[in-house]
Each structure stands twice: as C-alpha cells, then as structure tokens.
Write a protein that binds this DNA or RNA. Structure first.
Length: 676
DNA sequence: GCAAGGTC
C-alpha cells in the first residue's frame, strides 16, 4: 500500500527549506513551482513509526487581502462614511499569490494530511487558516494539523513534527478583524481628509493626506516632541561646585543636593560654607567597588533599526532593506524578529568559528572558542525566529552592506563575550553640613568592548584620597545655570517610542516612519551632527486640528490603537466575538468621523479665527523651515482666506467651482459633503 | 490614489 502523503506549508521559502533539511536529514528532492523563489521539497520521513511521504512548500506572507467591491473604487463614487458599512470582499493579493495558491491547491489533491508550518504568531494563524481554505477546496477530506515550534532548530522542529496541535481560529479571527477595521477606517478618513483639504488648498495638488491607525500616532509622537521643544520655558538654577587639585589632577566634586531653583536658598548655604576661612573639607567616604558595563542583548529588529540610526547613520527603512539583502544572500539570519534571547540549544561555536578568519575581529572570535558561551536573556520571544546573527562568513561586501554586516557580526560576538569590568571609586567630602561627591573609574577588563566599538566606556582618573583626611579645596564656587530644552525627536527615539507603545510591528515600524515622511507630514533635518524628525507645517496643522476637536480618545495618540489591540487580544482569548468587536469599533470611528465633520473649522484652522487665519497664517513664523505647502509655493497668499470654506466633497462641487459659502462668516454648511 | 500586515 502506498504510504500516506503529508503536505507541509511554511510562511516563507527560507523556513520551508530549513524544515525540509532538518526532517529529511538533507536528503530531499527539490522541485520548482511557477514562482522561482517558491520550491517544493519532497522526501520520506517517519511519523508515529510509519513512513510517510512529505512535500514541504511555502507561501510568501499573506495570500489574501480585503477590499471593497469595484463600485467603491473611485474616490468620488460614494461618501467616505459609506465605507464604514460597505460590503467587503476577500481577494488574492496579486498574481504571485495566485500562483502560490495554485501550487498548494494542486498538491492538496493528492495528499491526505496538511500540516501548517506558518510562524507561531497571530498573523501566522491567519495565513495558516487561508492555506487550509485552499486545501479544503481541493480536497474536502484533508486532515489538518498545525506544527508549533519555538525556533527553527532540529530538536524543536522534530518535536513539532511529532506532536502537532490545531490551528487557533481565534487568532485568525483577530487578524480578520484587524484587517477589516484598518481598511474601513483608513480608507474613510484618508479619502475624507484628502478630498476635503484639496478643496481648501489646491496647491496640495494630487498629494494624499492619509490617515492610518499607526501612521497618525507616529506623526503624533513627532509633533508632541516638537511642541515640547518649542514651548519649552527655561528655568534658572544654582549649585555649589567644589574643585580640588591633587597630584596635578583636577577633580570636580558635585554637590549631593544637585541644583536648587531658589537663588536665595543657594546663596544662604554658600555664604554659610564660606564664612570660616580657609574652607576645610573632610573626606568622609572612600569606596572602591567592582562595576560592570553590561554587554548588549541579542539583536532584535527594533534594536537593529535603532543602532542603524544611531551608530551607522542609516535610516530604519534603508537598514531593513540592507538586512533583507544580506539575509537573502545567506549571510545573516532572518532580520524580522522580536526575540532577544538565544535558545539554550543554539549552536554558537560553529558560527563564532566561521568569523575567526576575519582580519578585523577574527582574533577576538578565536578567543571565544575555548570559553563557555553565555548570553544575556531579554524578555521577548516571538517563538519563531532567533535573534539576528551572522550565519556565514561574508567576504567581498562593500559600502553599507559591509557596514551592516560588520555591525551584526560585532554585536553577535559582543553578546557571546563577557561584560566589561572595572573598579569605580567614590570619594565623598563634607564641608560643614554639605556633601560633595567625585567618582573615578579604572577599567580592568574590556571584554566585549574590544569587539563592539559602538559602546563607549572610559577610564576616569581619580587621585588618592584617604578617609578622614582634611584639605582646602582649590575652588568652592556658586554657579548659575539654566535648564535646556529637550532635543527634537531622532529616528532611533521614535522607533523606541513606537515599539513601547505598540504602534506597528518589528516588520512595519520603519514603513510607518517612511510613510509620514513620504506624505510630507514630517521631514528629516540635520542639526549639528544629528538628524532629527521635524513636523512640516502640514503635519503640525493636521495634528493640531484633530487635537483641537478634543476627542475623548485622540486620533493622534497611541491609546486608540492600543485599545483596538486589546480588543483583538480578547478575541484571541475567546472572551469576545469578532462581530462584537467590529461593531463596537466601526461605531466608535464612525462617531469620530461625524464629530470631525461637524467640527471642520477646528480641523482646518483650529480655534484660531477660522476664515481669517488659515493654517499657514498661524504657522507663519515657521514657514522658513520649508514645509510641504510653502515648498510648493504660494501657499501663504494663495490659500489665505480660503480656509473657512470647510471640507467639501469633490462631488457636486468641483475644484474652483465652489460657491464659497461659509468662507468669511464663520458658518459651516456640512451638507455638501454628502456623507449620508 | 487610500490602511496595516505578511514577505521576495
């Protein structure tokens, strides 16, 4: 009797290949599909002490997407509000996805079992459920199971093969919900904002003013920091500073009280200290203890992007492109991972060995080979991918690829090394009743710092002080200072903030940042030797406009997305139904849409005398920064006095044919939008 | 032409 056939489908080609290698012991037949990067791997394998025939293939991320039926495709075909309730259709993403579907469909005819090997996360369950649908269409009797693995290494994969579980349909439903909400809300607000603002500012041309539940909070973070800088009010402070000259070394002692914001208070203390001359300081504490500079955590996508901006001066979008290229060439591991801990069975030695031939870090790598490797363990594990690490020694790389590969290797070797160690000495002195402290550092072991130049730690020389000795300081002065404003947001900080607030995923954070730049809501500016993200007039005006409407839950803050995420989690946990969450969220956003529409004057001009001051008018002082609209020329005069027109739909009132009602009397007629 | 999420 012919043995049973099992079809295994992974989320991406590289995983299909790895699983095939592991389960077949590298003895498989590889067949092409109609897409050159999708391969089918065939071999025989034991399952429950029976021999089965296995075919492993993959999809390439999502197969299906949601869309509105074609009659809604034209922006003017309906009022944007209709999109909150319009029917939605499921379709194959593109022609490639169609070929991938066909490949699976054809194989499914001839197999009895289907095993899903997509990533073990929410999106993976959804992709898996789409694969099941395809296979059931071909073969309604197919027996379905799901492999659950926490890393693509032999023991985990073998374990997953032998003890499969069932797909988690709750998670798939959560993703279906997310897809539908993102589509409805994103399209409705985007069309509304775009068509409406184009009416008011024709110089926007064909520019799109998009709304998205991730891109708006991202923009919000940039604006929030910008305003914190602009609105910053300096405050003066005073402090007492002690300088000691010993053994030809100047030692600065910092006041334990830090700074005081009351000059009289500071003066009183200072006068008291200076009353008896000469001033006598007594050493009350000399302590030396071992200190460490911790080696880095294993590398995640978010950390790679932050490091790219900070150390390598490469934007997050570009570093992801480069990392994906390095991955596709087989030099580094999968670059989209949240995992910051290596599996305890991870094979470090072979990977370190491979690096030992390099003239730059080879000696360091060699020195690790006879040591026991321990790495720091972060708190994240996506159950699918290990931290980013080099998988092969690479030669012949140039430019930024070389830079990024070098970073990945050095980071990996740093993780495998030891913390840097040193001795920190603290000297505390007392003058009357005031205490002052100085610290020194002697580095005793560089360890990881030798291979990881991106971190800095340096010796700080401190001469000898003896407990209870007394001396007269060289100087004891009162100093005035003032608080300094925060800096504008850097891309690395933005990535961090998005990550912490759950805006976007490791694979999409950089896309959202790129999007708000492409939309000209935000621009990059070099100040000094750093690059900052600064909102354009347009970005600032939109955020201020929405914020001035005063929603309970701001469209430009992360909380709204967080609540949606919480609802999705409830679907995953089985405590809420998809339709329940859909209805609640669609209603919520529809309400916000209507409130927006009823407060157009606030959106387009804030509460600042709409009709007289347009957005440019209120932002005039910042015009020199080269905003979207001013760059396109003539926004100032051209749009002045037009803002009061309010949002109007393009339909029924073509551009330039407006009747101009409501433009100067502050009244708004919302009817023309046709939002019914 | 619009979203966010996968991935090549």
């Amino acid at each position: 009797m012919e043995s049973e056939k099992v079809l295994c489908v992974a989320e991406k080609p590289s995983v299909a290949k790895e699983i095939a290698k592991i389960l077949s012991g590298n003895r498989f037949v590889m067949r092409n599909s109609r897409i050159n990067y999708i391969k089918n791997y065939e071999f025989k394998c034991q399952l429950n002490s029976k021999e089965v025939q296995v075919i492993i293939t993959s999809v390439c991320g999502h197969i299906n997407a949601l869309d509105f039926p074609s009659q809604y495709a034209k922006w003017e075909s309906c009022s944007p509000t209709v999109l909150f309730d319009a029917p939605i259709i499921k379709k194959t993403i593109d022609e490639n996805a169609e070929c991938i579907r066909e490949n699976i469909f054809n194989i499914a005819h001839s197999v009895s079992h289907l095993m899903i090997w997509t990533d073990c996360d929410r999106e993976g369950e959804k992709i898996g459920s789409d694969i099941v649908d395809i296979c059931r269409m071909a073969n309604s009797d197919i027996v379905v199971s799901r492999a659950r693995f926490s890393a693509i290494i032999p023991p985990q994969i073998k374990q997953a093969w032998e003890s499969p579980v069932q797909l988690d349909m709750n998670q798939a439903e959560a993703v279906n919900t997310r897809m539908e909400l993102d589509l409805r809300i994103g399209y409705a607000f985007t069309r509304y904002q775009t068509l409406g603002l184009r009416q008011i500012f024709p110089e926007l041309g064909n520019g799109i003013l998009s709304y998205g539940s991730c891109q708006f909070p991202t923009l919000g973070f940039v604006v929030e920091r910008y305003k914190a800088v602009e609105n910053f009010v300096k405050e003066k402070f005073w402090k007492i500073h002690v300088v000691v000259d010993r053994d030809d070394t100047i030692v600065n002692f910092n006041w334990d009280k830090g700074v005081l914001f009351n000059v009289n208070c500071c003066n009183a203390i200072y006068c008291d200290l200076m009353m008896d001359q000469p001033v006598i300081a007594t050493v009350v504490e000399v302590v030396t203890k071992e200190t460490r500079k911790y080696k880095p955590f294993p590398l995640t996508t978010v950390e790679l992007q932050k490091a790219g901006c900070r150390f390598l001066h490469i934007s997050s979008a570009e570093i992801m492109k480069i990392a994906e290229d390095l991955y596709n060439k087989g030099f580094i591991s999968y670059p989209r991972t949240e995992t910051d801990q290596f599996d305890h069975q991870f094979n470090f030695k072979d990977l370190i060995q491979a690096q030992s031939q390099d003239p730059r870090w080879g000696d360091f790598a060699s020195s690790l080979l006879d040591k026991r490797i321990t790495t720091r363990k972060g708190k994240h594990n996506d159950q699918a991918h290990p931290p980013i690490h080099p998988v092969q020694y690479a030669t012949g790389l140039t430019g930024k690829e070389k830079t990024v590969y070098e970073f990945v290797v050095r980071r990996f070797l740093a993780c495998c090394s030891d913390d840097a160690k040193g001795n920190e000495t603290t000297v505390k002195i007392k003058i009357k009743e005031e205490y002052f402290t100085a610290k020194g550092l002697v580095i005793t072991e560089n360890n990881y710092l030798d291979v990881y130049p991106y971190d800095r730690w340096s010796d700080k020389n401190l001469p000898n002080f003896i407990l209870n000795e007394t001396f007269t300081p060289k100087e004891c002065t009162i100093e005035e200072g003032e608080t300094t404003p925060p800096e504008y947001l850097t891309e690395a900080e933005l990535i961090n903030t998005m990550d912490k607030n759950g805006i976007g995923t490791d694979a999409t954070i950089h896309e959202h940042i790129k999007k708000i730049i492409d939309r000209e809501y935000v621009e990059k500016q070099d100040l000094g030797n750093k690059t900052y993200l600064i909102p354009s007039n347009l970005g600032l005006a939109i955020v201020e406009g929405y914020d001035s409407i005063g929603f309970n839950e701001s469209l430009t803050k992360p909380l709204l997305r967080a609540k949606m995420e919480q609802n999705l989690k409830e679907i995953c946990e089985g405590t809420r139904e998809k339709n329940d969450v859909l209805t609640e969220n669609v209603n919520k956003y529809r309400d916000m849409f209507l409130v927006t529409h009823n407060n157009l004057q606030l959106l387009i001009g804030g509460s600042r005398d709409v009709g007289e001051n347009d957005i440019q008018g209120t932002r005039g002082s910042r015009g020199s920064r080269g905003s979207r609209v001013s760059k396109r020329g003539g926004r100032g005069r051209g749009s002045r006095g037009r803002a009061g027109r309010g949002f109007t739909s393009a339909r029924g009132r073509g551009r330039g044919r407006g009747r101009g009602r409501g433009s100067n009397d502050g009244s708004y007629d919302n009817e023309p939008l046709n939002i019914d």
